Deep mutational scan, measured.
Amino acid sequence: MTYKLILNGKTLKGETTTEAVDAATAEKVFKQYANDNGVDGEWTYDDATKAFTVTE
């Protein structure tokens, strides 16, 4: 299944996707991606759209 990450960081904005077996796996991938790019903020998840959002 495809999951999307929407980044609303102070220095990094954009979107990326990942293929994962479930939302928990996608969340781990996205949190590592955000951490690697220096984005740390409030996380939300919308199951209807399979989209995670992180806002700094």
Score class of each variant (00 low, 15 high):
E15Y: 13
A26R: 00
K10S: 10
A48C: 09
T2I: 14
Y33T: 03
V29F: 15
G14I: 14
F30Q: 00
K31E: 04
A23G: 04
N37A: 13
V21I: 12
V39S: 02
T25Q: 12
L7E: 02
D47M: 07
V54P: 00
V21L: 11
I6C: 06
G9I: 08
F30R: 00
M1Q: 14
K13N: 08
T17I: 09
A51H: 06
D47R: 07
E56N: 05
A48G: 09
W43T: 01
Y45A: 00
E19D: 11
V39P: 01
T25D: 09
V39H: 04
E19P: 05
D36N: 08
F52S: 00
W43M: 04
E42H: 12
D40R: 13
A48M: 11
W43A: 00
G38T: 04
L12V: 13
N8G: 04
F52C: 00
G41L: 03
K28I: 11
D40L: 12
N35T: 14
A48V: 13
V54N: 01
A23C: 13
G14V: 14
V29T: 10
E42Q: 10
L12I: 13
G41C: 03
D40F: 15
M1T: 15
T25A: 14
D46W: 03
D36Q: 11
G38M: 06
A34D: 00
T53A: 05
T49G: 07
T16K: 11
V21R: 11
G38A: 06
L5Y: 02
Q32C: 06
E56C: 08
V29S: 05
A20H: 03
A23R: 14
A24C: 13
E15T: 13
L7N: 01
E27M: 14
F52R: 00
L12G: 06
E15M: 13
G9H: 07
T11R: 11
T25W: 07
T16Y: 15
K13Q: 12
M1R: 12
D47P: 15
V29Y: 15
G41W: 06
T55C: 06
G41A: 02
T44Q: 09
W43N: 00
D22R: 03
D22I: 02
T11G: 09
M1Y: 15
V29P: 00
V39N: 02
Y3T: 03
K13H: 11
T17D: 05
K50Q: 09
K28F: 08
A20V: 04
T49N: 12
W43D: 00
W43K: 00
D22V: 02
M1G: 12
A23Y: 12
E15I: 14
G14Y: 13
A26S: 02
D36T: 09
A23S: 09
V54F: 05
N37E: 06
T18L: 13
L7C: 09
G38S: 06
E42C: 12
K10W: 10
V39W: 14
K50V: 03
D47L: 07
D22W: 03
T16R: 13
K4Y: 13
K50P: 02
V54W: 03
L12M: 13
M1V: 14
K50C: 06
Y45R: 01
G9M: 13
T17M: 09
V54A: 02
K10Q: 10
T18G: 03
G38D: 07
Y3K: 03
E42K: 10
A51F: 06
V21D: 10
K28W: 08
E27V: 05
G41N: 02
K4G: 03
Q32H: 06
G9S: 09
T18A: 07
V29W: 14
K13R: 12
K31R: 15
E27S: 06
Q32V: 07
T44M: 08
I6F: 11
K13D: 04
K28A: 12
E56T: 08
A26N: 00
T11Y: 14
A34M: 06
A20Q: 06
T49F: 07
V54K: 00
V21H: 11
M1F: 14
F52Q: 00
K28H: 07
A34C: 15
T44R: 07
L12N: 07
N37D: 02
E27W: 14
N8C: 14
T11C: 15
Y3V: 04
N8W: 12
D36I: 10
A51S: 14
T17P: 02
K10R: 13
A20G: 04
E19I: 15
E15R: 06
T18H: 07
K10A: 11
T55Q: 06
E27Y: 15
E42L: 12
V21T: 11
E19C: 14
K4H: 12
E15H: 09
I6G: 02
D47F: 08
L5S: 01
K10V: 13
G38C: 09
T17G: 04
V21Q: 12
K31V: 06
D36H: 07
N8I: 13
V39I: 15
D40Y: 15
T18V: 14
G41V: 02
F30M: 02
A48H: 09
L7A: 03
T11L: 12
K31Y: 05
A34Q: 01
T11W: 14
N35Y: 15
A24Q: 12
Y45M: 01
G9L: 15
Y33E: 02
E15K: 06
V21W: 12
K31S: 04
Y45P: 00
D46T: 04
T16G: 04
E27T: 03
K50A: 05
K31G: 03
L7W: 11
T55A: 05
A34P: 01
D36Y: 07
A23W: 14
F30N: 01
T49V: 07
I6L: 06
T2M: 12
G41D: 00
D47A: 14
Y45I: 01
A48N: 11
D40W: 14
E27H: 11
G41H: 01
V54S: 01
E42W: 13
T55W: 08
A26G: 02
L12R: 09
A24F: 10
A51N: 05
L12K: 10
N8Y: 11
T16Q: 09
K50G: 06
E27R: 08
T44I: 08
G9N: 04
A24G: 08
W43P: 00
T11P: 04
L5C: 10
G9R: 04
F30W: 01
T49A: 12
L7V: 13
T18P: 01
L7H: 03
V21N: 12
Y3N: 03
A34Y: 02
V21Y: 12
T53C: 06
G41R: 01
T18D: 02
T2L: 13
V39A: 04
E56V: 09
A48Q: 11
I6R: 04
T18C: 15
A24L: 10
D22N: 10
V39K: 02
I6M: 05
L7F: 10
T18E: 03
D22T: 05
V29A: 08
V39R: 02
L7I: 15
V54T: 02
V54R: 01
D47H: 11
N35W: 15
F52M: 01
V29H: 11
T2E: 09
D40E: 13
V54L: 11
Y45W: 04
G9Q: 04
A24D: 10
L7T: 05
K50I: 02
N35A: 15
A48Y: 11
G9P: 03
D46L: 04
D36F: 08
N37R: 14
A51P: 00
K50Y: 08
T49M: 11
A26M: 02
D36K: 10
G14E: 09
K10T: 12
V39D: 01
M1N: 14
D46N: 08
K50F: 09
L7G: 02
A20F: 04
A51E: 13
D22Q: 03
L5V: 04
G9C: 14
T44L: 07
T49Y: 07
D22L: 04
K10I: 14
Y45H: 01
K31P: 01
A26T: 00
G14P: 06
T25H: 12
Y3E: 04
V54C: 08
V29G: 04
D46C: 08
Y33D: 01
W43L: 03
K13F: 09
D40Q: 13
N35K: 15
